[in-house]
Amino acid sequence: MVFPGKKKIYIFFFVFLLIIAGFYFFRRAEQEINLYSQAEFFMDTVVSIKIGEDPAVEKAVNKAFEVMKKEAIRLNRYKEDSVIYKINYSDGKTINIERDIFLLLKKAKKYQELSGGAFDISIAPLVDLWGFGKEKQRVPEDYEIKEILPLIDSNKLLLQKEYEQYRVYLPSEMSLDLGAIAKGYIIDKGVESLIKSGYDSFYINAGGNIRVNGEKSPGRSWHIGIRDPATPASILTEYITALKKGSLATSGDYERFFESEGKRYSHLLNPRTGYQERSLRSATIYAPTALQADILSTAVFIKGWEEGKIFINSLENVEGVLITDDEIWLSEGFKKLLILQ
């Protein structure tokens, strides 16, 4: 004879067991999504893709890398077979270029205007004067910079569409450098390629510029941190974002620089003055596409602490984080992207 109380104990045990088992299997299921990841070195940096594993994924990732590498070469002004090289050595003659590069240059001009000249792809002569991209860097003399500044003005880069011809004119003494735009551009191309292959959840990182699409696993966003500019090997633990779409890009004075007489000279140059801007250690931008985030992180870094904030707030769908030696500013919308609010 079993008493009703004992029955309850059995039921209680049963339910308890089910709850634990359910919790356990749910947890297991969440972890069991294996990520396929691949990293390759090009564009002077590391480019990596993370994506949910499936039998065909390797082929799709290889395809995306192939596309990105091809685009990286097209934009590299140091490569003789690149479009940018052709434009830079066009000797003041109008030449025909492909439609996609035409549209990219058009966008670059638009952002030059929008940023009031804080971002400018015709910055190449200034980059060369400082020696970035070359073996030796040096601090130029004031007069050298003054001589070069008039050459930096994207307004003199003329784009013209005639029938189905895409034409570009660049004055012979000017030249273009797409360094502040290339990583973002190739990430977006990689995203397009993966979507075309039928994937909708993945992560692409090119030298610290990141774009994500979809969720990492059901119910779990991609968690992206921001590097602490003061210590290269650590991240800002209070500012970790959870993203399901969009891009994060950071411009910092620690990226590429040289030191002279105890002073740090970053590769991020102000196209209007010819010199570095020193109010920020880093600027991080969240934007829908990697191209936008890449361009805007450079522009905001150059604009600095005060102007940078105003600029970020004036742009739609764009958020940002500005970091100085002792202060951090986050736009209102950026706070909503954080895991810990």
Partner: peptide, 28 residues
Amino acid sequence: AGPKIICVPNKIIIWIEKEENDIDGVSW
């Protein structure tokens, strides 16, 4: 877990992976 040590010229990447790691990438 999170930050990586990268040597571009010698093509080496070093990082730490932890199960409780919640970070998929770092913007730098």
